[in-house]
Amino acid sequence: MAGVTFVHTVRRNWRQILYWGIGIGLLGMYVAIIVQDADILKQYAELAKSFPPALLQMFGMNDVATLATPEGFISFGFYGYTLLVLAVYAVMAGMSVTANEEDDGILDVVLALPIPRWRVVIERFFAYALIAILIVVVAFGGLWVGILSSPLEINTTRMMEGSINMIPSFLLMIAFTMFVGAVARRKATALAAAAIFIVGSYFINFLGASASGSLADTLQAVSFFSYYNSEDVLLNGLNIGNMVLLLGVTAALVVGTVWSFNRRDVGV
C-alpha cells in the first residue's frame, strides 16, 4: 500500500529529528550568542589573518574579512562544518534504506510482502529526506533563538538561506550512501565508499581552494562541498544553480539505486 513504508520509516526515526536538530541547534545558538560585540569580531578577523589560509578554508572561509561580520562569523563557526556533522546522520540514513536491513536479513521479510522494490527505496528515501529537512529546520530554530538574543543586527533571511543551502548537500550524502549500499551489497564496503566520498570531497574542496592551479583545484569541480559554499550563501544569498545541480545529482543517484536494487539478488 502506498505510503505505508514512508510512514513506518518516519515513525521509527522521528526521534532523530529531535536528537540531531536540538544538538546542532544548540551549537548554532551558542555561536550566535557569543557574537555580542562587533569590535570583538574585528579582532577575530585580525587574528585570523595570521592563520594559514588552508586552516580557514577547512571551515569554508575563503575571505578573512568576512569574519568581521556577524554573518561571516556564523558561517565560519556554524555552517562551515555543520554539514560534516550532518554527514554522520546522512550515512546512517543512507545505510538504512537497504544496506542495513539486507545485512540483518530483515529485507527478506519486507520484500516478500506485496510491495515492489522500487517503492521500498523511494518511500524510505523520501522519509529520510523529510527527516533530514526537519533536522535542518529544528537546528535553524536553535540558531534563530541565538540570533534573537544577540545585540547585533544579524540578517535572519541570510541565516535561513544558509540553512536551506545545507539541504541539497545533506540529501546528496543520503542518496550517495543509499546508492553504494544498494550496489555494493556489503555494509562495510558501502560505509567505506560513503566515507571516502564525503571526506574526500571535503578535502579536495579545501585543498583546491588553498592551492590554486594544483590538481586539487582542478578536482574541486567534482567535490559537492564546492557547490555547498556556505560563506558565499551567507554573504550573497542562495545560489540556485548550485542547488539545482546538487538536487539533480541526488535524483540521479535515487534512480540509480532503484535500477540497481531492482535487478539484483537480495541477501546473497
Partner: peptide, 20 residues
C-alpha cells in the same frame, strides 16, 4: 512478484525483524 506476494504467506529460515 508483487501480486504473488499478496497471496503468499512466508516465514524465512532465519527470521530477523526490527529489534526496537
Amino acid at each position: 512478484s508483487v501480486e504473488l506476494h499478496r497471496r503468499v504467506g512466508f516465514l524465512p529460515g532465519e527470521l530477523s525483524l526490527w529489534k526496537s
